[in-house]
């Protein structure tokens, strides 16, 4: 070995290759710091697991007693419903806002900018409270000609139920964020694609639907998955409107039996399960879009 090492040092080994059976063994760099760090983290982790299992006040029996209870499952259903409906409103509204913002009409584009500024610039929590109390601002809502005749009038209290207030709050807020995601997706499509479509005699709407949006999807879909997962968790704020989604259902139970911590854990476990399922879906979605993206960009 030492002889070979000096051979290599002098550079002669390149001309006389060393036979493979005598090749030197490569020793990786030693990293003692890793072992120390890992040991420290493991000790802390063991402490956490120990306390979770031995502290009786976690009351795991209560956690699982309510885990599949009707009220918790109904709350979970409401949470999923809120998430999907609000996300649909957010995506549709976001697309409209993005197209408005990118349009050449200064009134439309500045209106979209103002909307995005307002809804991104105030806390969602405040917006939810606001929609919940809208009847204080507009006791009556009516349908009719602007500044003219009214055809029908409704009491805001009847029309804006906690559920309506919740999807309005979540959906309209989400639209502002989705608008920015869609705008960046649409802007990511090369100008040449639009020019080629126009040169072939395609109209604006056809070009948007057939050429620009399908290509913008590569950029839009991955962050939209993130938004969906975020929406699931943000929907817990709706508890403030006394709408029985997952968190508020748990709150209603512990308000009676005072088992606050176990019921918060019950709710959290369900949030974890759903976000895990969504994250797995998100992972595959991202991989799919990365692959077609990488494949297509490589030769362009």
């Amino acid at each position: 070995m030492p002889v070979q090492a000096s051979d290599q040092a002098s550079g002669r080994s390149q001309m006389n290759p060393i036979p493979s059976d005598e090749a030197p063994i490569i020793v990786p760099e030693r990293k003692p710091g890793r072992w120390v760090a890992a040991a420290l983290v493991l000790v802390v982790a063991a402490m956490v697991v120990n306390t979770v299992l031995t502290n009786e006040r976690f009351q795991w029996d209560v956690v699982f007693e309510y885990f599949l209870s009707d009220r918790i499952l109904a709350g979970l259903g409401n949470t999923l419903n809120l998430t999907l409906v609000s996300m649909t409103i957010g995506i549709a509204g976001g697309l409209v806002l993005a197209l408005m913002r990118l349009s050449g009409n200064p009134v439309l584009s500045s209106t979209a900018s103002a909307y995005i500024w307002l809804f991104r610039g105030t806390p969602l929590f405040v917006q939810l409270l606001f929609w919940g109390s809208i009847s204080a601002l507009y006791p009556r809502l009516s349908i009719g000609v602007p500044f003219g005749v009214e055809f029908a009038t409704f009491s805001a209290n009847d029309l804006i139920s906690p559920y309506t207030a919740a999807i309005l709050g979540l959906g309209l807020n989400e639209a502002a964020y989705m608008a920015e995601i869609m705008r960046s997706g649409i802007s990511s499509v090369e100008r040449g694609q639009t020019e080629a479509a126009y040169a072939l005699g395609m109209r604006r709407a056809t070009t948007t639907w057939r050429i620009v949006l399908p290509q913008a999807m590569r950029v839009i879909i991955p962050p939209t998955g993130n938004q969906l997962i975020g929406m699931l968790k943000m929907s817990a704020m709706v508890a403030v409107l006394a709408y029985p989604e997952l968190l508020y259902s748990a709150q209603l139970i512990y308000a009676v039996n005072y088992q606050t911590i176990p019921l918060l854990i019950t709710a959290s476990l369900w949030y974890l399960i759903v976000t895990t399922v969504l994250s797995v879906g998100q992972h595959f979605l991202e991989r799919h879009y990365q692959r077609s993206d990488g494949g297509r960009r490589a030769k362009e």
Partner: peptide
């Protein structure tokens, strides 16, 4: 019209 950068619809 034929462009310098082809501009084929990538999708």
């Amino acid at each position: 019209m034929v462009f310098q950068r082809f501009n084929l619809f990538a999708h």
